[in-house]
């Protein structure tokens, strides 16, 4: 019975390693490969911290199992020994984790700055947000500037609107203005590893680059009310040329006047 407990504790590090090793193939892992440069850096940080904490977890559990196992081999009538602390040992187990924590703290700073500090974004990019995303119960509403115009904070007559579909250029850093129309929401693009809360009354710029053209999820990551689960949208990343063409097409759709000229009066068609 005593051996059982030491085996019980030794099982956990083994189970943890096995489960972590299985996870990627069982689709229990990340939502796909990171699709943005910042996502790659965040993943690298994650793996670094996972390796550190994993090593510590496995090490301490193995040590615990070992101590239990050794104690279980002793006869029952052995008397316990009492110790009164070990200064050297305590110093070691305080200083080493301290150094590791400091290392993590300094190591992550640059990634955080890249993710959230406005100074890291080129002024040119920052001044030209490609879209304004307004989260609202329970959908995402996008506003784009019309082709060749800048996105203003106040809606302009030529602005273009779309719902639950955010179209962005791939391969360059873009800035998006995030708003909330009602309560607190959170803009979460899992494949891009981008997450930012949307606060009512506040305009929050977020920036990222999408490496490859494709479709990525956009969901709400802040429980916003009963319909929270409905707040799914799609981010469509297009190559630069297609992106331009798409915006042009959207502009035409938004200005559609429903008029189809009869074959003999095509010349009078405008708009």
């Amino acid at each position: 019975m005593k051996k059982l407990w030491s085996l019980f504790f030794i099982c956990w590090p083994i189970a943890a390693v096995v489960i972590f090793a299985m996870s990627p193939s069982m689709n229990w892992w990340f939502p796909g490969q990171p699709a943005s440069p910042i996502g790659e850096r965040i993943d690298d940080l994650f793996y670094l911290i996972l390796a550190l904490t994993g090593a510590v977890f496995v090490g301490t559990q193995v040590a615990l199992g070992y101590v239990l196992w050794r104690a279980s081999c002793k006869r029952d009538d052995d008397k316990a020994t009492y110790t009164h602390g070990n200064h050297k040992l305590e110093l070691i187990w305080t200083v080493i984790p301290g150094i590791i924590l400091l290392f993590i703290a300094f190591k992550q700073m640059d990634v955080w700055a890249e993710f959230r500090i406005v100074d890291r974004v080129d002024e040119e990019i920052l001044k030209n947000p490609v879209a304004e995303v307004t989260a609202r119960q329970f959908e995402w509403r996008m506003r784009y500037p019309s082709p060749d115009e800048k996105l203003e904070i106040i809606p302009q007559p030529n602005d273009m609107y779309q719902v639950n579909e955010l179209v962005l250029p791939a391969g360059r850093k873009v800035v998006i203005n995030l708003r909330s129309g009602d309560v607190q929401h959170s803009f979460f693009a899992p494949q891009l590893r981008v997450k930012q809360d949307a606060l009512p009354g506040k305009l929050i710029p977020i920036w990222f680059e999408i490496n490859e053209p494709g479709e990525y999820d956009l969901v709400c990551a802040e429980l916003c009310a009963w319909g929270h689960y409905k707040m799914g949208a799609v981010i469509k990343a297009l190559p630069e040329e297609e992106y331009k063409a798409y915006l042009q097409k959207l502009y035409e759709e938004q200005n559609f006047d429903g008029f189809t000229p009869k074959p003999d009066e095509t010349d009078s068609a405008e708009n």
């Binding site: 200005n255 006047d257 429903g258 008029f259 189809t260 000229p261 009078s268 068609a269 405008e270 708009n271």
Partner: peptide
């Protein structure tokens, strides 16, 4: 379908 008989006036 209700469609205009004239294109949008500029």
């Amino acid at each position: 379908i209700v469609n205009p008989s004239e294109p949008r006036v500029p």
